[in-house]
């Protein structure tokens, strides 16, 4: 069975990309595929907790809810610490179950986990 790596590089709102990528991750998990979601660059904002009902407020889905669904379905989610540091985001601001990968390690995860890599 192929390992799928969904690479999220866009912020959660303003573009459809992040929602679309997380939607692919959920669909793949629900069909029994092994999925890792890696958030890097502005994609790290997708992992922030405490999003206040964006669907009601700005008509964009909550990426926090999507990531929690992915975790419930057995998916792995990782965030690039390097990108977090650049943007002043701390681990305490992220969804608790999201893994923070140390500086430079995101590339190893992409290579190890991504037989099939799809980028958003």
């Amino acid at each position: 069975m192929s390992k799928i790596l969904v690479l999220i590089t866009h912020p959660p709102f303003g573009h459809e990309n992040t929602f679309a990528g997380l939607y692919v991750a959920s669909a793949a998990l629900s069909k029994g595929l092994e999925v890792t979601v890696a958030m890097t660059g502005d994609g790290v904002y997708a992992g922030q907790k405490g999003q206040v009902d964006p669907l009601a407020n700005i008509n964009m889905p909550s990426t926090e809810d999507q990531i929690r669904d992915i975790l419930d379905l057995g998916g792995r989610t990782i965030v690039d610490q390097d990108s977090m540091s650049e943007r002043g985001i701390t681990q305490e601001e992220l969804i608790e179950e999201v893994e923070v990968q140390p500086l430079g390690k995101i590339q190893d995860v992409v290579l190890d986990e991504g037989e099939i890599i799809v980028t958003f």
């Binding site: 069975m1 192929s2 799928i4 590089t9 866009h10 573009h15 990309n17 679309a20 990528g21 692919v24 669909a27 793949a28 069909k31 595929l33 099939i116 890599i117 799809v118 980028t119 958003f120």
Partner: peptide, 18 residues
């Protein structure tokens, strides 16, 4: 799309960097 990804040797995404 998931069925395609589950049955492929290569995968390419285009246009998602906009």
């Amino acid at each position: 799309y998931v069925e395609m990804l589950g049955n492929t040797d290569k995968a390419i995404t285009l246009g998602s960097s906009n």
